[in-house]
Every structure is written in structure tokens, then in C-alpha cells.
């Protein structure tokens, strides 16, 4: 709640770090975290989406393979794709949110090249013209 409550208008780094630690500890941590974050990233409220993307970014840096593998599934990547695609939520999503998603995906293609589904999803977005630069 501390990390992802949109009523918190400032980033709570202690809360975010605690979220990342907790998801590492729990057996079901990675799937639970990705489901929660996907839902919030799809929020029409820009701050809620940006906040959740910041938590996702931070956890990808500090968590290990279990979380990387869960984020690297199409089950989660599809939810990010929906946000940037005009066929789904893209038309009503702020540019800032869409840009951050594409930046994160690009960074993971470089930093986690073994997560091949991330690269595949990113290449698909490039091919469809969603990635403009």
C-alpha cells in the first residue's frame, strides 16, 4: 500500500524497497506483484500508472531471476502492450506513461538479453510502429 497507493503523491522509497524485498520472500511474490502492478499500470490516472511503473523499474533492478522471469512472460508483457497499443488502451493513455513503458522494455532488452520474450515483444512493437525512436 505504501509503495503503490496513488494517494501518496511522493515516491516512498522505503515502501518501494520493502515491496521488492517482500516479493522476493514470498513463494507467490512474483505473480502476485506482476498482477498488482499490471492493474495499476493500466489505471487511467497518470500518477497511479507512473508510480506503479517506478515500482516495477525498481524491482527489476533489485530483485532476482524469479521476478525477471515473471515480468518476462507474455502474461505480463501483454498487459504493458495493451497500454501502448491504440487498439486497446493507447488512445486514452498519457504519452508519459507510454514512453516510460517503452523505455523500460528497451532497457530490459539490453540488460536482460536472456529474457527472450521481452525482446520478442519489443521487436513486435517496433514492427507495428509503436516504438517511434
Amino acid at each position: 500500500d505504501k509503495a503503490t497507493n496513488p494517494l501518496n503523491k511522493d515516491l516512498d522509497w522505503d515502501g518501494i524497497n520493502a515491496f521488492c524485498e517482500q516479493l522476493n520472500k514470498e513463494l507467490e511474490g512474483p505473480p502476485l506483484a506482476t498482477r498488482l502492478l499490471a492493474h495499476k499500470i493500466q489505471s487511467p490516472q497518470e500518477w497511479e500508472a507512473i508510480q506503479a511503473l517506478t515500482v516495477l523499474e525498481s524491482c527489476m533492478k533489485s530483485c532476482g531471476k524469479r521476478f525477471h522471469d515473471e515480468v518476462g512472460k507474455f502474461r505480463f508483457l501483454n498487459e504493458l502492450i495493451k497500454v501502448v497499443s491504440p487498439k486497446y488502451l493507447g488512445s486514452r493513455t498519457p504519452e508519459k506513461v507510454k514512453s516510460k513503458i517503452l523505455e523500460l522494455m528497451y532497457s530490459w532488452t539490453l540488460g536482460l538479453p536472456h529474457e527472450v520474450k521481452i525482446s520478442e515483444a519489443y521487436q513486435m512493437l517496433k514492427k507495428q510502429g509503436i516504438v517511434k525512436c
Binding site: 505473480p31 507474455f74 502474461r75 495493451k82 513486435m124
Partner: peptide, 15 residues
Amino acid sequence: TVSFHDDSDEDLLNI
């Protein structure tokens, strides 16, 4: 509930 050893996944969404 999702199994700890769940390796299942969906197909890539085509847009």
C-alpha cells in the same frame, strides 16, 4: 492460485 512452479504462459498479443 498460481503454483510456485508454474511455467505456463500466454501467447504474445498481436496488435
